[in-house]
């Protein structure tokens, strides 16, 4: 089993002929993801890599291929419309990799998608991978292994680092979800914790947060109330100075709310094993499983 993406994922790549879209479409195809269609307005009728049909609209792509998931690589100024289009076409799941979508735009995208029953992962996220089954986004497939750990993270390369530590020491993953570092995102920690709790194959959960906001504190409360599986957590930004933006728009600490110390304390209180450094992930899992 796995969460959000699996062998049944039939993927549309929005922006398949662009620089990033074409590179990652190939990577996903090599990994074994069912890439059933691409969308680039004006390039309908072409074939990507001689195999994948390209359509002018997402609606055409769904009608012709029965796609249920889309991944967005279009430039930031077109990303919101790409999300609206996919939702209007009836997409079940959208993964928006694109970075730089204005936050005010997201305040409108989120309710629009919710009203149409479409799940969004991201924006500004590395996507999701269920090792051996499907990869949607940009997480390098070769660092993942099939197994029983669920990974959820706000980060990109830090997630890879932790997946790498897990795989190297024999802890494969059911699914790894990068939810994105922006202040307003479609799928949060709680959504992923609920999915991993419900997934019978997942034996333990690794949650990687960072400074800024209160998502991790809310997630800790959720763990206390609803999660029976062992959870191991990490917070990046323990040494970040207050009030400074650290690359991710989400990672701003102002005042006392959102500091690493506060989040680690919330984890600890919820019985989540807190890593001091990425290399702690395996020893802590070994203690708990």
């Amino acid at each position: 089993m796995s969460v959000f993406v699996d062998a049944g994922t039939k993927l549309v790549v929005q922006g398949i002929t662009g620089r990033d879209g074409s590179f990652h479409a190939r990577q996903m195809m090599e990994y074994g993801t069912h890439v059933v269609a691409g969308v680039t307005p004006g390039k309908g009728g072409q074939r990507f890599e001689d195999t994948v049909p390209v359509f002018n609209t997402v609606a055409d792509a769904i009608q012709e291929t029965g796609a249920n998931t889309s991944v967005i690589y279009v430039p930031a100024r077109f990303a919101a419309d790409a999300m609206y289009e996919a939702a209007d076409a009836g997409m079940e799941l959208i993964v928006c990799v694109t970075e730089g979508v204005p936050v005010l735009e997201m305040t409108k995208v989120i309710p629009y998608l919710r009203e149409r029953g479409t799940r969004l992962i991201g924006p500004n996220c590395p996507g999701a991978i269920s090792p051996g089954r499907s990869k949607v986004g940009i997480i390098p497939g070769d660092i993942c292994r099939e197994g029983h750990i669920g990974v959820v993270s706000r980060s990109g390369t830090l997630t890879y680092e932790i997946i790498h530590q897990l795989s190297r020491r024999g802890f494969g993953q059911t699914s790894c979800i990068g939810i994105g570092g922006d202040p307003i995102i479609g799928t949060n920690f709680i959504d992923c914790l609920a999915a991993f709790e419900a997934d019978s194959d997942t034996k333990a959960i690794v949650m990687i947060g960072e400074i800024g906001g209160t998502d991790e504190q809310n997630a800790a409360q959720y763990v206390t109330d609803h999660v029976t599986k062992p959870v191991v957590g990490f917070i990046a930004g323990q040494t970040a100075p207050p009030g400074r933006r650290m690359g991710h728009a989400g990672a701003i600490i102002s005042g006392s709310s959102g500091t690493a110390a506060e989040k680690m304390a919330a984890f600890d209180k919820a019985g989540i094993a807190v890593m001091k450094r990425p290399a702690d992930v395996v020893p802590l899992l070994e203690e708990r499983i």
Binding site: L158, E161, M246, P278
Partner: peptide, 17 residues
């Protein structure tokens, strides 16, 4: 000098550690 904001923060934290 790191690629990715999360890993950059985790690297700073490890320097301190």
């Amino acid at each position: 000098c790191v690629n990715g904001a999360g890993l950059a923060m985790a690297t700073m934290d490890l320097v301190k550690f």
